[in-house]
Nucleic acid binder design. Sequence first.
DNA 1: TCGATTTGACCACA
DNA 2: TGTGGTCAAATCGA
Length: 356
Amino acid sequence: MQAQSRLAAAASGGGGSGISGSGGISRLGGGAGEEHEAVVRELTRGHELTARLRAEALRALRGQGQAEATATFILGEVSRAFTVCLSIMASASPSASPPQPDETPPADSAVSPPPPRAAREDNVPRKRLLTASPYDDGYQWRKYGQKKINNTNFPRSYYRCSYHRERRCPAQKHVQQRDGDDVPALHVVVYTHEHTCLQGAPAELPDAATNGGAAAAASPDYFPAGGETPSSLRRLRGVGGGGLQPQFVDHRAAMEERERQVLVSSLARVLQGRQCYDDDTDVASLGAVHARAPAAAAAAPVAASSSSSGPVDAAGEELDVMDYDMTDALFWGPFGTDSNSYDGNLTSTRCFDLIN
DNA sequence: TCGATTTGACCACA
DNA sequence: TGTGGTCAAATCGA
């Protein structure tokens, strides 16, 4: 598990200034399990702190256009990186392993439960993912149902792409918290169908880690003809719990580099204050947070999948750990109407995937 | 008032 | 026939 080793090395401060202080890991003693728990604990803490920082930054930058958008983008990517790392750690967790045949059954299992219901054979492609952050995958979803599933402790929630009607996007997912006492709680997410709301996205998109995606947003295909969407811009500044990611609001012109530099430098100072980075942290390394996340996600699951002993869902089906690529970079931008009625045009953003 | 979520009922599949 | 998946009216909240 290369990624796990890297994470453990990073957590123990190998080669750098490391993490210290009251909230950090001063020393990683004990066995691998203890070390694993410590890394997960710190990642979870980092994830939570990022969310708080994001809320504070957005409050402070509200109405400041590019700065607000850039802060949303960067902190969103930092959050995503934490999510990826937590997913990797979850897949490597002893608690994530499927029950072994020789394990002692629960005391109340004298009557063996019925075999899990077979999956529907509808030839619909499905991707399964085990994650601690099932709602932070970069897409916008609308919940349309919830169901108590037999022999599980937690209900299953059903979601459709927010563009289900507007763009006939068939993408769906359902989320179900896995039984057990995982910390953080792990959820099995099953994605059904690919997003087709990505249609019309530029064929080639630049690396957002280096330019923030400004060139992508500058593509004439990215915004509809006539382009300006004041209503959507209003919505992007409004409420919504952070579901909207307006990183490319009005980015047809190249992002103003100076403003971005100022903001990123501020963020770097904040992050350094939390001692999350080495002393030589710079703007480039912040951008690399984005670049590393998909790479790390791709690296670890490959090894795990080859062992065919990865995590399983409630039905006993092995989770395809390659599905971590669902956390790859996604980009959102404004378009069209700001109506989001159920039957009409839904939202003021659309998404497309940089990868593929 | 409008959009999102909840939840009971219904439907289709194994 | 039971269960998972979806629908749609009711409800909630901004």
